[in-house]
């Protein structure tokens, strides 16, 4: 159920990975794009969004270890309005901490879809950009942006906390400029993203779109 604006496009998804009795538990509407609330309101809201970034750390790769120092007194990310948040529902920035295998991309997709838009994605390390040193592995995803829209890539193996802070600053500029519309991009190219995801996730046992 969505509160607020009226839905326009209603095309049913099959949720084919699910058992019959589970199907009704999940939403079967594809995501849709959202427009801003008018130029100046949206500018103000974007400024608020940029200065209150709640991160969901997806710490399966080695990059997660570089996020910890950010919270300490030395780097102190709280002064930039960045705070960790334990659940995908409440967070607005999704940090993918390094390489993603097929098993983890499944969880990444689910977590990403559970976040509420507008949502932003930061991918850390070379592995998320082109597979890094694991590019020829049977199990490492080469390009994260084929599966979920990525706003900022932070290169390095692994990037230092300073680099991550610089990445956050770049993300803030992008949000304030109104360019960070990853959720809308995902909704527009939904079938393309789903096809890419289903190409590598062979046992698709989750809903096609889960809230």
């Amino acid at each position: 159920m969505i509160f607020g604006k009226k839905r326009k496009v209603v095309t049913k998804l099959e949720n084919d990975g699910l058992k019959a009795e589970e199907k009704e538990l999940f939403c079967d509407l594809p995501p849709r794009t959202y427009k801003g609330l008018g130029k100046y309101v949206e500018k103000f809201l974007n400024w608020a969004r940029a200065n209150s970034l709640w991160i969901l750390g997806f710490g399966t790769g080695c990059g997660a270890i570089e996020l910890r120092p950010l919270m300490t007194a030395r780097y102190d990310m709280f002064r930039y309005g960045i705070a960790p948040r334990p659940t995908p529902r409440q967070s607005s920035v999704f940090i993918i901490g390094g390489y993603a295998s097929i098993k983890t991309i499944k969880r990444i997709v689910r977590s990403y879809e559970q976040m509420q838009s507008p949502k932003f994605v930061i991918a850390l390390g070379s592995c998320t950009i082109n597979g890094g040193m694991y590019w020829d592995s049977y199990n490492t995803v080469n390009r994260i942006d084929y599966y979920i829209p990525v706003d900022i890539y932070i290169a390095g193996c692994m990037p230092r906390p300073e680099a991550i802070i610089a990445g956050f600053e770049a993300l803030k500029k992008r949000i304030i400029a109104g360019k960070a519309e990853g959720a809308n991009k995902y909704a527009e190219n939904f079938s393309w993203y789903k096809a890419n995801q289903k190409k590598i996730i062979k046992d698709w046992n989750m809903p096609d779109y889960n809230w």
Partner: peptide
């Protein structure tokens, strides 16, 4: 165990070509 829904030959066997598989599957940049 770690591979969910693997369909190819088991990946640690030496006749499995990881490079070919990765190029075919993972959209190399």
């Amino acid at each position: 165990f770690v591979l969910e829904g693997w369909e190819d030959i088991p990946p640690m066997r030496k006749d499995f070509d990881t490079v070919k598989y990765a190029e075919k599957t993972f959209f190399p940049r």
